[in-house]
């Protein structure tokens, strides 16, 4: 149920993103969605792409601090209130979310989040018959 996301440790400095994006583009990796979270000193650049395993190797070999993280991607209808409903179901089950971001994909909404309680999250998603995406969906 989880999919692999690239998490990249970057400096808060101009030019650092270009380096990562160049490497991915040269390898023909397609980025599906990306987001940056930052503190004063550094940031974590999170990327969903069509081939996370290959992207990971490319970045790693270039000496970049990168990790493959397991995240959950829920598919919801592109309509008002659907995200709120999905999050409510997750949080009602007592699953805490470390971070979350969303985007539109093939006219559906996608909610991506990470949790330390992935078993509980999976259970909740199954019981509530929520739709989720797999890595296959992004290939």
């Amino acid at each position: 149920m989880t999919i692999k996301q690239l998490s990249i440790f970057i400096e808060n400095k101009s030019g650092t993103l270009i380096n990562v994006l160049d490497l991915l583009s040269k390898a023909g990796i397609q980025i599906i969605a990306s987001t940056i979270a930052d503190t004063k000193d550094y940031g974590i650049y999170r990327i969903l792409c069509d081939n996370p395993a290959q992207a990971y190797i490319i970045l790693k070999e270039s000496g970049i601090n990168v990790q493959l993280s397991d995240v959950i991607a829920l598919s919801i209808d592109d309509a008002p209130g659907r995200a709120a409903a999905a999050i409510k179901q997750i949080s009602d089950a007592g699953v805490s979310i470390l971070y979350l971001y969303s985007f539109l994909w093939k006219s559906k909404g996608v909610l991506v989040f990470r949790t330390d309680q992935s078993e509980k999250a999976k259970e909740t998603i199954m019981l509530n018959k929520m739709n989720f995406l797999t890595e296959e969906d992004f290939r």
Binding site: Q5, S7, I8, F9, A37, T39, I44, R46, N65, V66, Q67, S69, L98, R114
Partner: peptide, 8 residues
């Protein structure tokens, strides 16, 4: 050395 987490 290694990014061992993506949790701030």
């Amino acid at each position: 050395e290694e990014l061992f987490t993506d949790d701030f």
